[in-house]
């Protein structure tokens, strides 16, 4: 299990190689990458800033990762989330899950993203060259997290 909150970009292929190195029991790796979209419901953007709560962010991601490991038979997982200034097309987040068979890896990756979106202390601010605005949380994200059940969802 590996969690990183960082300004730097990540290399998906390199991360998958690190995750699977030395474990011949892994039969499935699922990767999710979140990108900055140019078009938003409020028009096109040219920049995004991601703020987070240093310390709590890492703890929240580790807690979410631990929950995924309890619920699914995973051989490993990695979460990388960027912060700082980003632009449309940039990678924001990477979730990798590895398991013997694909179902656990698919489900765990979805769970991790649903929980991350509602429990990890990140805030997005979008700009279009003029006044920047904070992104509103979406009810659909709360609903997505709730479908997994459990406390605090």
């Amino acid at each position: 299990m590996h969690v990183s909150v960082q300004r730097e970009d990540f290399d998906i292929a390199a991360e998958i190689s690190t995750l699977t190195a030395g474990d011949r029991d892994i039969g499935a790796v699922v990767s999710f990458t979140g990108l900055v979209r140019e078009m938003t419901p409020k028009g096109p953007i040219s920049e995004m800033a991601l703020e987070h709560y240093p310390g709590m962010t890492e703890r929240a991601l580790e807690e979410i990762a631990a929950q995924a490991q309890q619920r699914w038979p995973l051989q490993g997982l990695r979460i990388i989330h960027r912060h700082g200034p980003l632009a449309p097309g940039d990678r924001i987040v990477l979730v990798l899950t590895a398991s013997r068979h694909r179902q656990a890896a698919f489900e765990a990756a979805e769970f991790l993203m649903d929980y991350l979106k509602t429990k990890a202390p990140f805030w997005k601010k979008e700009g279009d060259g003029g006044k920047a605005r904070w992104v509103d949380a979406r009810d659909s994200d709360d609903n997505a997290a709730r479908r997994w059940g459990g406390e605090g969802t």
Partner: peptide, 10 residues
């Protein structure tokens, strides 16, 4: 103690 709006990461 920290105060913040609903989170919007991911």
């Amino acid at each position: 103690v920290a105060f913040f709006p609903p989170v919007t990461g991911g």
